[in-house]
Simulated scan of single mutants.
Amino acid sequence: MVSDAIVVGSGVIGLTTAVVLAERGLRVEVWTRETAAQTTSAVAGGLWWPYRAEPAGAVAAWSLASLPILAGLARDPAETGVRLVDGVHAGASPDELGPWAAGVPGLRETAPHETPRGYDRAVRARLPLADMPAHLGYLQRRLGRAGGTVTLRAVTALGDAARAAPIVVNCAGLGAGRLAGDPDVHPVRGQLVVVENPGVHEWFTVTEDGTGDPAYLLPQPYGLVLGGTAHAHAWDRTPVPSLAQAIIARCARVHPGVTRARVLAHHVGLRPFRHRVRVEAERLPGGARLVHNYGHGGSGVTVSWGCALAAAELALGA
């Protein structure tokens, strides 16, 4: 064996986990059937915000462990792809958000004049917002500096990785369920539209805007990301024109200028959902330690460092 650990999957969860292990001195190799740019992580909105992930208590802990790390990365956005951006989450007060809200520095309820039109309450916060293609590139470079490598290699069975290293970490997103024989893993389809930014500088989100779908506007260096949808058990990655039009219309109720903005791209991502995020360890036949780190739903960026640290403790037998 030439590697101490094989991490399966090159999305934000896999790369962050690989970085943590490599920076602890392990020889780490990431095995992935697709490049980081082809993963769901690459088209994610990138805002730190616990969304569609359970159990609430564990997700809160992982999210709050990730928050200061991502905020630290925001000191060098050109390198890391992470910025700190002010914004508003509509339709909720702080005590309605969940157990994580009290741990977010500066998060507060909006004053009446700050509350978006059409909503009776909202919260403001300054949060990490990642340009995901840039952030994934940063994680790969950081992994390389720590001696880790990425290999394009489809994994059909976790036992294949176990024959190459004594530690295997299953971070394969939707594929993690198949590899683990876990039928509970399923996609929650998210569609978004990227438009030329008409002057939006703050992020906006609402979990439920009356249509059954979330709505969000996320200013990125490459354009304004508009979303979205949350359709469970939908596997089709083809953008639907009628959904794109509905997304633009919903976002225009918050910022009317988006109706005139030139459309730059359409994207679809399949969030890897499970009733509970799975971060746990077991032994494979032959003695290799297998750590599962999957099922993060729409909170992959948000819990990335917290889950990576927890997975590393399990991998090292702590």
Rank of each mutant, 00 (worst) to 15 (best):
A130D: 14
R124H: 05
E282A: 14
I69L: 15
A65M: 10
G46K: 05
V185D: 02
E23W: 04
E282T: 13
G72Q: 15
V200K: 11
L270Q: 04
H201G: 11
I6R: 12
N170P: 12
L174K: 03
L314F: 06
P241T: 11
T302H: 10
A42R: 02
E280K: 14
A130K: 11
P272G: 07
V240T: 08
A261F: 07
V168C: 12
R108L: 15
N293Q: 08
R153V: 00
R33P: 00
R278M: 07
S3G: 02
A310W: 04
T39F: 07
L224P: 13
T229V: 03
P99V: 13
G300R: 10
G210F: 00
I6L: 13
L218A: 05
V277S: 08
A42H: 02
A265M: 10
V8K: 07
V43W: 08
A162T: 08
H186A: 10
A111I: 00
L158C: 00
A234I: 08
L143I: 05
T205L: 15
P272Q: 08
Y51Q: 12
E109F: 08
T110A: 15
R278D: 11
V195T: 14
E114T: 04
G269T: 09
H255G: 05
A53C: 15
V240Y: 02
E313P: 05
H89Y: 08
A164G: 01
V185R: 02
A165Y: 02
Y294T: 09
R24A: 14
V168W: 09
G9P: 06
G257P: 07
V7I: 13
W100C: 00
P221H: 12
L243W: 12
S63M: 00
L97W: 03
G118W: 07
V193Q: 09
E280A: 15
G118I: 08
S242L: 09
V2D: 08
T17D: 02
S10F: 09
N170I: 06
R163Y: 07
V258R: 06
A111R: 03
T151P: 01
P241K: 11
